[in-house]
């Protein structure tokens, strides 16, 4: 397979999951129309969702999920040491994700509530980059397979990938989606990085910010817009804190 006379690298990929729902991994395995082409372009050496192969060496590690236990920290460090490129896959890996909610509670109490009399060893939830250096972050809950495919293509040809920098609103408008603020709902669209094609607002659900902050997001103005429309401080803070992509603002 040559493209424009350039022979792409043959990269070995491994996919690993940590604390999360594995939805991002499923997403990779899901898109059947391109799955064969995807698997034809890369060598998958470890990917529990599509293959039982386990044969060691890899170039690119896609890491899904957040870090919440000591053994995960150790495993992640080992992966980092072996991978040339470490990619945080999905909102949990990029920001901590929904799991991060527990950081706002007393850890022991949270543990008791979930596991009752059999508490598990647990750490405050961290994003991958808070534990080891990360080369690339692909946010989304779940990630967009099309975007992952494009990034993989760019990795194969070793050229940088540019994420969209505009907020979700742009794509809502391009789909003729009625603004959810107009329907009285709260939506993080104006401050969340677009590129997802804005499926949630189109389906009537306000944006929860799974792709993190848009470049130059005007958070102050967003807060005052939400307040003016009678959304309470608590509702706004909860929304901003949901995926952890607005950590410093929630």
């Amino acid at each position: 397979m040559k493209y424009l006379g350039i022979e792409p690298k043959r990269l070995r990929f491994a996919v690993f999951e940590f604390t999360g729902c594995e939805g991002c991994e499923l997403q990779l395995a899901n898109k059947e129309e391109t799955l064969l082409a995807f698997l034809g372009a890369v060598d998958v050496v470890e990917f529990r969702e599509v293959s039982s192969a386990r044969n060691g060496a890899y170039d690119v590690a896609l890491v899904d999920g957040a870090i919440s236990r000591t053994d995960e920290v150790e495993r992640l460090r080992e992966i980092r040491a072996r991978a040339k490129v470490l990619v945080a896959l999905g909102s949990c890996a990029c920001f901590g994700g929904v799991n991060r909610m527990k950081n706002a509670c007393d850890l022991d109490q949270a543990n008791r509530e979930v596991y009752g009399d059999h508490p598990k060893e647990t750490l405050p939830t961290r994003a991958i980059h808070e534990v080891v250096p990360v080369d690339l972050k692909i946010p989304g809950c779940p990630v967009s397979k099309a975007e992952v495919e494009r990034i993989v293509q760019h990795l194969l040809f070793e050229v940088p990938y540019q994420f969209p920098v505009y907020p979700v609103c742009l794509e809502c408008k391009q789909h003729f989606t009625v603004c959810l603020f107009d329907k009285g709902q709260l939506c993080l669209g104006p401050i969340t990085r677009g590129g997802c094609d804005a499926p949630c607002p189109a389906g009537g659900l306000g944006c929860w910010g799974c792709r993190g902050k848009a470049a130059d997001a005007n958070i102050d103005e967003f807060r005052s817009i939400a307040r003016e429309r009678a959304h309470g401080e608590r509702e706004i803070a909860e929304r901003l804190g949901f995926f952890g992509g607005f950590e410093e603002h929630s």
Partner: peptide, 17 residues
């Protein structure tokens, strides 16, 4: 500098643009 120029720098003679 970016994506296109990065790819171009990999291209060899004979490539078509």
């Amino acid at each position: 500098a970016g994506t296109v120029t990065g790819a171009l720098h990999k291209a060899r003679r004979g490539a078509r643009v």
